[in-house]
Amino acid sequence: MLDVTTKAARHNFYSSLTWKLKRQEILDRDNYECIWCKEEGRVTTQFDSILEIDHIKELEHHPELALHNDNLRTLCKECHNKRHERFNYRVSTKKKKWDDEFW
């Protein structure tokens, strides 16, 4: 079984030729388009955003599915960050300064 328990082990996995070939296979399968954007009627390709391969069932919890096509999908960086609640995708409780204004 694949060891991905440490940050170094995950780095080794994502740097491996096996992963790079699988990543290319998934990009080809998904026509270099973000699956979530496509479901919403938008087209986001490698020319619009960085495309990333998402593990539907997390790699850390399901290392046995690391290279299974059914567990992988193409997402743009924005959707991938949203999926993992990273960066600017955390819910903000701060009220915007001009929310009560309309012109």
Rank of each mutant, 00 (worst) to 15 (best):
R73W: 06
K77V: 00
A66H: 09
F13A: 02
K38C: 03
H68E: 15
E78K: 13
W98N: 10
H11L: 07
Y32K: 10
K96M: 10
A8E: 09
W19C: 08
Q46H: 04
D54A: 10
K38Y: 08
H68K: 13
D100S: 14
C37E: 01
Y14S: 12
H55E: 05
N69W: 01
Q46L: 03
N69S: 13
W98K: 15
K57V: 06
P63V: 11
K38G: 03
L27C: 06
I56F: 12
L75I: 03
A8M: 08
E64C: 06
E33Q: 15
K22Q: 11
N81S: 14
L72R: 08
E39L: 05
E60S: 15
I56V: 14
E60R: 15
N12C: 13
G41I: 06
L27A: 01
N69L: 06
R29V: 11
S16K: 02
T74E: 15
K38L: 11
R29S: 10
T74R: 14
L51Y: 13
R42I: 03
T44D: 00
E85S: 14
E85W: 06
L21N: 12
E52A: 08
W19H: 06
V43I: 14
K97D: 08
Q46W: 02
K95G: 09
G41P: 01
L59W: 15
H61Y: 02
E25Y: 10
C34V: 07
G41F: 04
Y32N: 07
L51H: 13
E39M: 07
L17R: 09
L21V: 15
A9M: 10
D99N: 11
L59I: 12
L59V: 13
K20N: 06
L72Q: 10
F47M: 09
N31T: 00
C79S: 11
I56D: 05
W98L: 14
P63H: 12
C37I: 00
Y32H: 07
D70S: 14
R73S: 05
Y89T: 11
R42M: 02
R83P: 00
A9S: 12
E64N: 08
E101A: 12
L75C: 02
E101K: 13
R83A: 04
T18V: 10
N12E: 11
E25H: 08
L75T: 02
E64D: 15
I50G: 08
F102Q: 04
W36Q: 01
N81P: 04
D100N: 11
N88Y: 14
H11I: 09
Y32V: 03
Y32A: 06
E39N: 06
K22D: 06
D48L: 09
K95T: 11
R73G: 04
Y89K: 11
